[in-house]
Write a protein that binds this DNA or RNA. Structure first.
Length: 469
RNA sequence: GGCCCCAUAGCCAAGUGGUUAAGGCACAGGGUUUUCAUCCCUGCAUACGUGGGUUCGAUCCCCGCUGGGGUCACCA
């Protein structure tokens, strides 16, 4: 049987980072087995639906290269006739019935049970005479539990699981508005879409016994269950939420994180390959991902680690490829393509995120001089203005003699300057660096001067010379 | 609260009935001709939640407990 997995989000807003991890696992399971990864939009709750949220899902998955294989994305709201058809089978077999109660009545019954301190089970209030259900009559359809006993099932991650009959109830299959519940729709859809593995979060474990009974009633062989652990916030116990600082994929993208880093980070939350390797591409993961190595325990989302992985990928990607990703992360003054590429080349080893490129303005535009950066610098504060001027003047004169302005020659010349001035590198180089950049940090001096170019370097040095008194 | 699941350091985690219980992140110190960063060293934490069993021996097997999480919707 061909491996087919699916990602089935609700279009209710931003795609949550935890949802993406589930999608990633589903994708990898499919691709590892040369199977299909399908996308389905679970839009059966019209109250929670957010317009355009499906497009956000498409965009996010596409950006991450988690390409789905179905040409036409499945929307549950377009499949109501299918759910009704399956519902009819259950009604005919006497395994489903129209709910005679109003919402208020059910609420009251629930409150009564709660007050009595016992769990509410709808089936204990099931009417003797069951009403026949018809689509479009405005009544919800409920599943009729029969033959109550303990339910056992197997999960590819958690092993053998079971739950007692107290977990089985007459749950709603089709709501009064005519749309199916998740509980019913996903079973029909997964069957008709020939899904082999259901990959989903642990919040569904407790409703699985009810699903099992429905599979039985529909005479459907259940797919394999792959329950992935949840992702928790670094602090606090609850599932990761916006409150814990968790952002959407879109947010991380805008903050300068690479898709490779996000996927790499997420796959390691709840999975490992039993080696000490930590940096994986999507293509590599496609070859090695193994369901049996998915963790059971939930993991905490540590953004520091994501930041580290992002740096790894910034250094690992080919320069040209990395350059393509930097669009939108440059300071507005950065227009020249060639300069930008050279800046990226010498900056990349110190980038944590692409957004750090916004601090490179001094490569594109003369900085506003701030002499206090020089006079308060720990290596320079004892020099005094006369010595500073003298050093900069010597530097200016010597650099001006360079005929072929490149990093190698600059390095040689700068080393020579150390000897002629008798200054330590920390002193001379800090002075030059600050004079041409007025930035708290910058790349290695020969590279920086090389990219700035002869004219700019000399002009900036001269301007500081003129200012120091 | 009932039910279900989980449990190796601050975090991600490997691992076995007998190991000095990997590795990474974070953190601290040091090194590489300036800075920030990279990279390389070193350190790092009394890490197998707890109490009972089983066993010659348990982190590993069993039970209780504790702790954490999930779930008890006409949400998914």
């Amino acid at each position: 049987m061909k491996t087919r997995t699916r990602f089935a989000p609700s279009p209710t807003g931003q795609l949550h980072i935890g949802g993406v991890r589930t999608a990633l696992f589903a994708y990898l399971i499919a691709k590892r087995n040369k199977g299909d990864f399908l996308l389905r939009i679970e839009d059966t709750d019209k109250k929670r639906e957010v317009k355009g949220a499906d497009q956000v899902i498409f965009d996010t998955l596409s950006w991450l290269d988690l390409q789905w294989d179905n040409q036409e994305v499945v929307y549950q709201s377009a499949r109501i006739d299918r759910y009704n058809a399956w519902a009819k089978k259950l009604v005919t077999a006497g395994l489903a019935y129209a709910d005679p109660y109003t919402a208020e009545e059910i609420t009251a019954m629930r409150a009564e049970s709660e007050a009595a301190g016992k769990p509410f089970l709808y089936r204990e209030h099931r009417p003797e005479k069951l009403e026949k259900w018809q689509p479009g009559e405005g009544k919800s359809l409920r599943f009729k539990q029969t033959n109550l006993h303990r339910v056992h099932w197997h999960d590819d991650v958690r092993g053998d699981l079971s739950a007692g009959p107290e977990n089985l109830d007459d749950f709603v299959l089709i709501k009064a508005d005519g749309l199916p519940t998740y509980n019913f729709a996903h079973i029909v859809d997964d069957y008709e879409m020939k899904i082999s593995h259901i990959v989903r979060g642990q919040e569904f474990i407790s409703s699985t016994p009810n699903f099992i009974r429905l599979y039985e009633a529909l005479k459907i062989t259940p797919p394999r269950f792959v329950t992935v652990p949840s992702i928790l916030g670094l602090t606090g116990g609850k599932k990761l939420s916006k409150r814990d600082g968790a952002k959407s994929v879109e947010d991380y993208r805008n903050d300068g994180y690479l898709k490779e880093a996000i996927l790499n980070f997420l796959v390691l939350l709840g999975w490992n390959d039993n080696s000490t390797d930590e940096i994986f591409s999507l293509a590599e993961l496609t070859d090695i991902f193994d369901i049996t190595r998915i963790q059971k325990a939930s993991a905490r989302f540590d953004e520091k680690r994501l930041l580290w992985i992002n740096g790894q990928w910034i250094r690992k990607l080919p320069l040209d490829e990395l350059y393509k990703r930097t669009e939108g992360f440059w300071p507005t003054e950065a227009q020249d393509e060639i300069t930008k590429k050279r800046v990226l080349e010498i900056m990349r080893e110190r980038l944590k995120t692409l957004a750090d490129l916004r601090e490179t303005t001094y490569f594109f535009k003369d900085p506003t001089p701030d002499l206090s950066m020089i006079t308060s610098n720990k290596f320079l504060k004892d020099l005094g203005p006369a010595r500073i001027r003298e050093l900069l003047q010597t530097t200016h004169t010597t650099l001006a003699e360079i005929t072929d302005w490149n990093a190698d020659n600059l390095r040689t010349t700068l080393n020579l300057l150390l000897e002629t001035t008798g200054e330590k590198p920390a002193t001379l180089f800090s002075l030059i660096r600050l004079s041409v950049s007025f930035a708290p940090f910058s790349p290695e001096l020969p590279f920086t001067l090389d990219v700035l170019g002869r004219d700019t370097t000399l002009r900036r040095l001269q301007s500081v010379i003129n200012m120091v008194k």
